[in-house]
Design a protein around this nucleic acid. Structure first.
Lengths: 230, 230
DNA sequence: AGGTAGCGAGAGCACTGCTCTCGTTTCCCA
DNA sequence: TGGGAAACGAGAGCAGTGCTCTCGCTACCT
């Protein structure tokens, strides 16, 4: 059925090979050390040939970034899907721990995804969809909590008008859209989650916390309580 | 009094010049693009001469990192010190907004400090003290809240024994030491704060929030409420 | 069957961090 | 008041980088 020409199949395969080699190099030495020439060497081809497949080093990095987001998204979705739908707190826990576990298993990919962007690098638009997979999972839990009539821990008296408008995009990522209070709490949980993972992974908790596992578990439970999950 | 030899003063001055040039280059093109040769060109000297002052590019980067942490720390301390001691919420607000404002004014320095560590780079021990200045300020506010007999928003029934031990370092950063509940809340606020700033600065909120100022203000107030500040 | 487009290899450019050597200058101490 | 030693700046050079250009070749489409 897929009447691929010989050239097209060869191209697809080589593209995969390049990505695989690049991913291996990324995983063991980090994004900044990824070298087109090294990939070419690894594959036994001239460095210039690689440019037939990826127009620049940044394009290669972008492809890896998309893969990283997808991998993280899949990991989080899988972990959360394994939990009984009605148990909101466990669903949140599963998702949150999946994020951290994935980050610890793929530190360089995580750094590429959520660390500082590489020099002057602006993520192309085709990365935004994969980038939202993981976030969408936790927002889904929050949305279900709202649908179940729960309410988040009390906050400031009321959310300002401007803020309601500002939160429109994130609120309407799920259906029915999130109330402002939930949108704020959801975003806050996401910030705290990624903030902790980044601090832990990048070594900024080194002199503050002795047991990362223990503290992360408490953090996640605290956030669950604030989200009104039970 | 300071009977500096001519050589010593020259050395000190050149060291400052190198740092200044490197800081300028860092500020406008980011850490990864910082080039020893460019610094040397800027100062009209041979690139090899720079190595008389800094043994490696990483050493130069480390010096800039220390400066960045110090600058951030000073900014946060100044902002917080301007607020009446008794007004805990305003002190927290001032510190939190100072962090974000500084990060937005010095994006590359922030990326260097809190983004992904540069390739295979491990921060030497002389960076840890400056790195704690900013965090110490917000912990100070939390400590004062505890001293004033306030209590943070309710969390999970109680903090696990292991967690209490795990939090020992951060709790005893201030005197008297923080209770476990406050330590958790403080750490959580710090994670959420840096998490938000990183997400905002690195473009991960691009399709979720329309007005960063507005949302950050709500986030900070929400965190204040959770910390039990008023 | 022939023109076109994709392909891989190789050379080359401009750049990087870093090292080594070489003559010169400054300092310390005997 | 000399040295001798240490610090210094410049230059050349090494090994590596991203990326471009040109060259022959081959598969494809019309």
């Amino acid at each position: 059925m897929t009447a691929q020409t010989a050239r097209a199949t060869a191209r697809a395969e080589l593209t995969r090979d390049i990505l695989a080699s690049a991913a291996a190099q990324l995983a063991e030495t980090g994004p900044a050390a990824l070298s087109v020439r090294a990939v070419a060497r690894d594959l036994g081809m001239a460095s210039s040939a690689v440019y037939r497949y990826f127009p620049s080093r940044d394009a290669l990095l972008t492809a890896l970034l998309v893969d990283a987001f997808d991998d993280l998204g899949a990991a989080v979705e899988d972990a959360e899907a394994r939990v009984r739908r009605g148990d909101l707190r466990r669903r949140w826990r599963a998702a949150a721990h999946a994020v951290r576990d994935w980050a610890r298993e793929h530190p360089h990919e995580y750094a590429l995804a959520y660390g500082s962007p590489v020099p002057g690098y602006a993520a192309p638009t085709d990365t935004v969809e994969p980038a939202m997979r993981a976030a969408r999972v936790v927002l889904g839990v929050v949305a279900d909590a709202q649908a179940a009539g729960r309410s988040p821990a009390a906050g400031p008296s009321r959310v300002a008008r401007g803020e309601k408008a500002a939160l429109e995009p994130v609120a309407s990522l799920v259906d029915p859209p999130l109330s402002p209070a939930y949108a704020v709490r959801g975003l806050m949980a996401w910030s705290a989650l990624l903030g902790h993972v980044s601090l832990e992974l990048f070594g900024h908790l080194h002199n503050g916390v002795l047991d990362y596992d223990e503290h992360f578990a408490t953090l996640v439970d605290q956030l669950a309580a604030d989200l009104g999950l039970r």
